[in-house]
Structures are given as structure tokens and as C-alpha cells.
Amino acid sequence: MGLHRVAIGVTHRDMRTPLVFDGHNDLLTRLLQAGGPSAVPTFAKSGHGAIDAESARKGGFGGGFFAIWVPSPVDVNAKMAAMQGESYDMPLPEMVARGEADAVVAREMAILGELEAQGFVIVCRTVADLREAFGSDRLAAICHIEGAEALSPDLSELDDLYAQGLRSLGPVWSRETIFGHGVPFRFPSTGDIGPGLTEAGLRLVKRCDELGIMLDLSHLNEAGFWDVARTSSRPLVATHSGAHAVSPHARNLTDKQLDAIAESDGMVGLNFACAFLRPDGKMRSDVGMDVMLRHLDHLLGRLGEDRVGLGSDYDGALVPQALSTVADLPVLRQAMVDHGFGEALVAKICHENWFRVLEKSWA
């Protein structure tokens, strides 16, 4: 029994607490596909997706990183079928043109602004903002861009995006950008696939460090990961990833990578996507809490209690049946308690570790 365990039988009085601050969701893309800013009123009630105001209250969801992402054409049914196999290697979409990406980023930024205008979220630019918003009647939201396709090589757009509220950025979403290369949806595989950051990518890392924009490593390949580790002065953070030792998927982090994250005093948010959780890599939702706890145990063992959180990928991935929406988060809290995690550790995983690492990333 590890140091992070306590005696079995200790329970929380209310499994809606501690509130969850989540490392990644794709709500903005879902609302974009549902009609854009005009779809924002649907956020008030459940039944439209994994995250909404009503479900957040029921499940004790306090906010998180709201991702801006540029979709690529994909045959979802073919992708899901392929990811039922014993092994697979999904081809990545082609690079997205900057003009196309810029238009999508502007629309999703407008959706986030409309969520704020209608009183659903508070877009947070500092940790003080987060602490003030967290636990209020609105969700605390960090503006995150997943894939830097909307940026030109000279990064001239970055300062304006920062002024609009951008505080977290992933240089790639798996597909190639002018800044670097990501990992494909490949199983079994490591992320040691192809070259790392370009010269523009290295400049992006340095400028994000200067501005106080947190870099997200979740979709970068291993070469890009190590380029960031050598270049950045900030903590290494993967907002929505899992342990490769539990599920040998290209999207998950090896022990060597986890050790580097620990050394930098960064953190990892555990991804709920079924294919990245399951040891067999299959995109099937019959995933028990025991599998998630195996990932958490492994991450805690490599990173320590202060460097592990949650990064659900809600509204962007197939997640375990028992955690289909944020209203179901009490199931995960109860599983952690039943597994022997103490109250202090559960609070760290649910939100405290995110606030800690952001204080260092944004300083």
C-alpha cells in the first residue's frame, strides 16, 4: 500500500466535492458544430453533450481548460471500427491552412465569449481569477488552443490571442503543423514517431514562456516533447494523457517522459478516452474504474501526489459508460475513496494540483 493510501472505509460526506477542475474538454467544438454562438443557450440544460450547466451542478464540476480546436474531415464510423482491432494505425489528416484555422479559432473564441456573456463561465487569466471563480455560480474557464494552425511563423497573432484570454496552447493536435509533429492514433506504439519541433516551434516555446502561456504536451510526439523539455523554463504539462505502462498507446506517456515531468515540477491530467485507458487500446466504453485507478496509481508513483490531475477530453472522446457526463463525476470520486485515496489526495487530484502548476506556469 503506497504512501498516498489511507485506511479503507474513509469516505466523503458528499461525493459532489471536492470540485473538479478539468485539464481538457471540447465543448467549444461541439457548440461550433451545433450552430456556433447561437447554440450557447443549450448549455443551460442537460441532454446535448457531456458538459452543461445543469450536469456541472449535479456532478461538482467547477471548470477547466476549454479547448479551441480546428476539426478535420473524418469518417467517424470507420475510425471507431478500426479502433476495435488488436492493433491499428489511423492516418492523420493533412495540415490545415492558416486562413481556415484562423476563422475557426475566431468562431470558437466568440462562443467562449458568449458563454461568459450569458453567465455560464468566467474566462480566467490569472490564478487569482481561478480561485475567485471556482465554486461560484459560474464555471472557471481557461482559454486553450489545441493545435497552433492559426499562428504564422513570426507568431504575430500570439500577443493578440493572449490579450483575448489565451493562457494555454498545444503546438499540435496530432496532425502536423508548421511548429512540429504529433502522434497518430496508433496501438501498440510509443510516441517516438518522426521529427520534433521546427525552428518556428522552438520560437513558439520561448515566446509562450515569455508571455506566461502554458504549453500542453499531450499531442506532441516524443521528439517534440524532448525539444520542449530542453527549451522551456516552465513546468512540463500534459493536460490529457495516460500512462503508457498501463495502455501502450502512442498518445500515452512513457515512464521516461513522466520522470522528466516530475523533475520539472509539472503535471499530467488523466485522459478519460477509452482507447487510451484500456490495456488493449480498444475504443470501447466498457471500462471499469479499476482501469482508471491503475493509471492514477502509476502516475502517482512516477510523479508524486502534487503532479496528477484529471483531463477528461469530455465532448471530444468516447469515455467510460460510468462517466458519460460531468454529472457522473461522483462515481470517480467514490472510486478513489474506495481505493484508499485520502481526502487530501482526492482534493489534489480534483483541482488543487492544477492551481499549483498554473501558478508556476503563469508567473
Rank of each mutant, 00 (worst) to 15 (best):
Asp315Thr: 00
Gly59Lys: 12
Leu161Ala: 02
Gly113Val: 15
Pro18Arg: 13
Leu323Trp: 04
Pro320Ala: 04
Ala50Asn: 01
Glu116Tyr: 03
Ser156Lys: 12
Arg16Pro: 15
Leu27Ile: 14
Phe21Tyr: 08
Thr29Asn: 13
Arg284Asn: 13
Val96His: 03
Leu318Lys: 00
Val326Cys: 07
Asp14Val: 08
Ala163Leu: 11
Pro235Glu: 11
Glu54Met: 12
Ala106Ile: 01
Met336His: 06
Tyr88Asn: 05
Met83Gln: 14
Ser247Tyr: 05
Val183Ser: 06
Gly212Met: 00
Gly36His: 05
Asp52Gln: 03
Glu108Met: 10
Asp160Met: 09
Pro184Asn: 10
Val357Arg: 00
Leu318Met: 13
Leu115Cys: 08
Arg5Met: 12
Arg131Cys: 14
Asp209Trp: 03
Glu305Ala: 11
Val96Cys: 01
Gly340Arg: 00
Gly196Pro: 08
Leu258Phe: 09
Trp354Asn: 03
Trp362Ile: 04
Leu202Arg: 03
Leu310Gly: 14
Asp286Met: 01
Gly224Lys: 00
Asp306Ser: 10
Val76Lys: 06
Val10Met: 04
Cys274Pro: 01
Asn252Leu: 01
Ala322Trp: 08
Tyr162Lys: 11
Pro37Asn: 10
Ser55Gln: 13
His181Ala: 00
Lys360Val: 02
Asn252Gly: 13
Cys208Met: 09
Ile261Tyr: 04
Ile213Ala: 13
